[in-house]
Design a protein around this nucleic acid. Sequence first.
DNA 1: CATGAATGAGCCTTCATTCAT
DNA 2: AATGAATGAAGGCTCATTCAT
Lengths: 185, 185, 185, 185
Amino acid sequence: MGTRTPREAWIDAGLRALATGGPDAVRIESLARALGVTKGGFYGYFTDRGALLVEMLDAWEQRSVTDVIATFERESGSVLARATRAADLTFSEELLPVDLAVRDWARRDPAVAERLRRVDNQRMGLLRSAFGSAFPDEAELEARCLLAFSAAIASHLIAADHAQHSREEVLLRAAELLFPPADDG
Amino acid sequence: MGTRTPREAWIDAGLRALATGGPDAVRIESLARALGVTKGGFYGYFTDRGALLVEMLDAWEQRSVTDVIATFERESGSVLARATRAADLTFSEELLPVDLAVRDWARRDPAVAERLRRVDNQRMGLLRSAFGSAFPDEAELEARCLLAFSAAIASHLIAADHAQHSREEVLLRAAELLFPPADDG
Amino acid sequence: MGTRTPREAWIDAGLRALATGGPDAVRIESLARALGVTKGGFYGYFTDRGALLVEMLDAWEQRSVTDVIATFERESGSVLARATRAADLTFSEELLPVDLAVRDWARRDPAVAERLRRVDNQRMGLLRSAFGSAFPDEAELEARCLLAFSAAIASHLIAADHAQHSREEVLLRAAELLFPPADDG
Amino acid sequence: MGTRTPREAWIDAGLRALATGGPDAVRIESLARALGVTKGGFYGYFTDRGALLVEMLDAWEQRSVTDVIATFERESGSVLARATRAADLTFSEELLPVDLAVRDWARRDPAVAERLRRVDNQRMGLLRSAFGSAFPDEAELEARCLLAFSAAIASHLIAADHAQHSREEVLLRAAELLFPPADDG
DNA sequence: CATGAATGAGCCTTCATTCAT
DNA sequence: AATGAATGAAGGCTCATTCAT
């Protein structure tokens, strides 16, 4: 996984570097080293470092949207269950660090911001459809979805300790607050 | 504010560069240009680029914790009102972009992560004390505070649109969900 | 004309590049692009970039001397008329830029200079035979021929304006000075 | 001569490289080697390789026009004698190879062509004023000057032999044809 | 043969760092 | 202390060349 065509190998290596060190860490030379080839070969596949960055973002957007949506639609079960599986994919160990890196990158590159907007709109759409039935008040639904999305992201960016609880416990409790289990107390 | 001693001028310029472009953008040469001096002079104040980064983080931690806490304690009014003013300071136009940059940086540098932990713990402490009286259940309080903190940060990192509502409206509604105003006037 | 054998296609493409950008512009990669093939194929025909340059010069010398002389001898009419047609060929839109490029190249490569010497001697020979009958004084003939040859070349290298006259007019007048038309009709 | 400020040293080294190998031979690294410094230092003086080329052309234009004109006007003697000294300067061992290189360069770079036009116009002006009195017919004067200028340049680009005569002899004879000594037949 | 892929050398450029003044 | 100058390492890109298929 990760080395089908050499072209994709460069892209995957680039995404790994992006996840680890941000866009500045996407250096042709170090990717080449990681792939066990020489940097010159890169230019057989991409015209430019910039072209690689663009294709990395293309791949990221594809995986983050198209693939995730496809998962959502292919899966069976309740909307909630399917959205959960889509979220698991989105925040998988592989995609999550890229996601965080792209968010930071988007703060300084409008083209990246535009892609992120497309991706985030899809994700919010998924959230809305997952929980829509439970909250007829549109504004309330939107607020709960944004809070959920925020927690999903920021929990990887906030370093605070929670004394007697683990982060997972706190997040679980937060989920219950946002989307209380349907039935009875 | 911004240019007291030349030493602080370098640090401030460094924080501005960090806010705008991340740690890789903290380049001695461009800071010197921004300060209107030659880069050689830098080494009269710092042994090293690394030393500047450390001192930038020192300054950031100082401003983000000590100054904010001092504000909190100096101010008068309800705990909530004082915490709000502290939060306004924390997420001021000046400190916020540095905050976001540091969060991203912390993902790849353990020393930065450790500082962030100290800062975030202080902030969570402020949140807890602001809303503690309203939520006797400790776990619930923690969950609400984490959600609030997450929203404060992630709202700057999420690019989704909200159709008929503005982001501010959605955030306001979220705040009401998390910390409902006391039901009487 | 231009793409008989692939071998000649490379040579022709090389000469075009030489004419346009000098010897440094004769790059295997760009010739391959121009020919719509991959650069690897080049080495099926030539051992080396140097070998191509040599063969380009061979072709140029052939076309500039043998072909021109053949034209001169094949044509009918007065010596002058035949020499004029030979000159037209030499300074055709196709051969002229190569000629100028070779002259510059010859300044820094003795092997090229030697070829140029052979070519220029043939041309001066043609000039001498064209105008020899009109100027019995050998030294004077030589001077007139050199001036004519110089003008033919340098007029493409001199950028001066001529106020009320066009370059063509000035050259025509120069030709009359060098080789005055027989004084009768 | 050639090493006043380091800035001028780079320019002079660049002009030497241009004269010897054309614009492509103006390589920062080899100039640095020739100057006994490292290439990195170059960027303290010029923003760019392109900036060096521009300044080289500035210097060449200055030396070829301003300096030559100044010589012409400062000198005493007949117009012809002064023009001769200006020409000697123009075609000095130092300036001539640069002149030839610039001519070739001008064929492929419009900005260079424009500079050459300015320079050549000045030179033709000098020639006209040197010989103007002898040839009242303007068109004839122009033709003779162009022939003279052409010979001055092309004699360095034409490789033909002249059998019993040397190139210098032929050129001398050519000069007499173009500008016959005033006195007796 | 021709292609796809890769190599390695060379060049331009940036930048942290040093040092004499 | 601050400047001007230089260094050296690194990274982006081009290109001649090789080689397996």
